[in-house]
Design a protein around this nucleic acid. Structure first.
Lengths: 239, 239
DNA sequence: ACCTGAACACCGTTCAAGT
DNA sequence: ACCTGAACACCGTTCAAGT
């Protein structure tokens, strides 16, 4: 997974301070990231606290600040680490760019789905870590191999990431509530839609089933299909 | 803006408690929502605190709980109120469904852009308030007028909302930092991309300008175009 | 019924002091 | 250089007590 390190990336304004390194004297940045990710996996993002992380490592919260600039930066590091778990396309195939893009999207969703509601914290960040950069590089390679212009490629990588992380964000929220409770809520929602006054809400009434029946996978698949077909259309139009 | 009230909507699992009404004895739910929105507009979502809201109204935080179940619910009420500012399409025109969808998307973005980073709190919520429902109803009417199937309409209203709110979320983050700082960061980012090792990051290097030049409006417009062209394609395919 | 002060159980972060 | 305890300046929410 490792490779030659990159020059230092610019940091987005007003995020945490810079990182210091420790040379394995009990605590280390890696151990802190591990502990943080473990908490997110098992108890979700809200349970992630400088205090809970410290506790898991047998210290107090103040000790973490020798290895991590802030809680904000710790989350950034966790996200970057998790992006490292995503398998991006290594060899772009011009004939299969749509499939390869879908594969990548599925991979990203799968990985974030395996880490609680971490996607919530990841959303809206401009990721400049090594793993995130490699991922974007791979997506751009696939898009260009598919014949998309420079302009469309640059916009598309952004759009696709927004979509996938948005879905992952919502996935995480749904996972935050008990599955049974969630099913109940959807059922309640359906009968609520059906009970609406038909003169003012004709579409809610007649689409009540459609609106509450699709599972999250078909929603995801649909959006992906729309985006890729849309990219094809926009790209064709440009030429 | 008001109309006959709807039957009580189901509440998503594990959000705030139910609302009590006060009859204008100094404090009221409306006044609390006003104060909260005002704080968000001027200082952003992070400045919204039960304490800051209470302070703006000349009381202590405990007093708010007679009118609002929780902070979570207060935010929900603020979001619902803000959605009320969006002008949705009243008369769907079958010949102009794409334009009408774009108009609605622009309206939503415009309204949320005028309320700090509120979109961040709105994202991922299933909105069941009256205003939100009317908005979704209007979008579905436009989609169906455009000839989209029930299935595609139901999925599309969801997809479009996800996109617009995702963009609005990012808008809000960008607005959180000083404009000058943000420009500097983008410039830094560009030279960082350009300085990357070309053997491992050929696309970042050659697309450095494209990746850092588009302003937020062109990004938004591009995604909207892709989505709508994609919906056309998917819809044609279905028939 | 509404409002309040005080308190509870938390936060992230700093800082002087230790090694 | 790293680690720590204690403290600072906050949170959301509860609850007994007031009117």
């Amino acid at each position: 997974m490792d490779s030659d390190s990159l020059p230092p990336a610019p940091r987005p304004p007003s995020r945490g301070a810079s990182t210091r390194q420790s040379r394995q004297r009990g605590l280390s940045q890696a151990a802190i990231i591990d502990a943080a990710l473990d908490i997110i996996d098992r108890e979700g993002l809200d349970a992630l606290t400088m205090r809970t992380v410290a506790h898991a490592l047998g210290t107090g919260p103040a000790s973490l600040y020798a290895h991590v600039g802030s809680k904000e930066q710790l989350i950034e590091l966790v996200v970057e680490r998790v992006i490292g778990e995503v398998h991006f396309i290594g060899e772009p195939d011009p004939a299969r760019w749509e499939e390869q893009l879908k594969e990548t999207a599925h991979e990203m969703r799968r990985v974030f789905a395996s880490h609680g509601d971490l996607a919530r914290a990841s959303f809206g960040r401009i990721p400049v870590g090594e793993n995130a950069m490699r991922g974007a590089e791979s997506m751009m390679a696939v898009l260009r191999a598919g014949g998309l212009s420079d302009r469309v490629t640059a916009l598309a990588v952004d759009l696709l990431s927004l979509y996938v992380m948005g879905i992952a964000y919502e996935d995480g929220l749904a996972r935050g509530t008990e599955p049974e409770q969630f099913v109940d809520f959807i059922a309640e929602l359906r009968s609520y839609f059906e009970s609406l006054p038909a003169d003012r809400f004709p579409n809610f009434v007649s689409l009540a089933e459609q609106l509450t029946s699709g599972d999250e996978n078909t929603r995801f698949e649909f959006g992906l299909e729309v985006l890729i077909r849309g990219l094809e259309a926009v790209s064709k139009n440009e030429a």
